[in-house]
């Protein structure tokens, strides 16, 4: 069984643990650089990106995570998407910068703008993970404002990309871990087995 780390500094890491179990992988909570050893991939969960960033810096985890990301697939949801993006705005903040995307934090507004939508993933997603619309839970969510040339958009909501991939990296601005639909987690797990490492 594949062993996937979940960054467990703050946020909904337990929900990701359950989602991984449903998708058929083992979860390891990652709180130190040593915890990364022997893992096949990493999930950065939802939560407060400022809190995670603060702890990543203080515990000197920025470099070990970025280095892990150059060797293994990484999947981020919401705050995780913010931490993986090359550019972050509202406000501008630091990140692991593994993906060529620009993300605006809290772009829909405050909690009153949090919502559940139906999203229709594109054919590429359907082919690899299964067809049919998907429920997307957006919580004070970011919006992906720019995607680089090598980034593929797998689903949009109101025209904005909400699920995108670039080689071994996958990010969602919504929370697949808060629904029982395992397709997004299964898609991520498929990146672990195809042995493509961190090819860009």
């Amino acid at each position: 069984m594949k062993r996937v780390g979940i960054l467990a500094l703050q946020g909904d890491f337990e929900a990701h643990g359950k989602a991984l179990a449903r998708a058929g992988a083992g979860a390891v909570f990652v709180r130190t650089a040593g915890d990364l050893e022997g893992l096949d991939g990493l999930i950065i969960p939802g939560g407060e990106s400022t809190t995670m960033l603060k702890l990543l810096r203080e515990e000197k985890l920025m470099d070990p995570l970025a280095e892990f990301g150059r060797r293994r697939p990484v999947f981020g949801t919401c705050a995780g998407a913010i931490l993986l993006a090359r550019e972050v705005s509202n406000p501008v903040q630091d990140s692991l910068a593994l993906m060529d995307i620009a993300v605006e934090r809290n772009a829909y507004g405050r909690q009153l703008e949090s919502h559940v939508s139906k999203v229709q993933p594109d054919e590429e997603f359907a082919r690899r993970a299964g067809a049919g619309e998907m429920e997307a839970v957006f919580i004070r969510a970011p919006i992906i404002r720019r995607v680089g040339e090598s980034v593929r958009v797998l689903a949009r909501s109101n025209g904005d990309p909400v699920l995108v991939e670039q080689g071994p990296y996958l990010v969602a601005t919504f929370h697949p871990e808060l629904t029982v639909d395992s397709r997004v987690h299964r898609l991520f797990l498929s990146k672990l087995s195809d042995g493509n490492g961190a090819r860009r």
Binding site: Q10, G11, E48, T51, V137, R140
Partner: peptide
């Protein structure tokens, strides 16, 4: 679900 969702995001904090 959206209300509980924000509480989920605050866990561990």
């Amino acid at each position: 679900r959206v209300k509980v969702g924000l509480a989920e995001m605050l866990k561990g904090g």
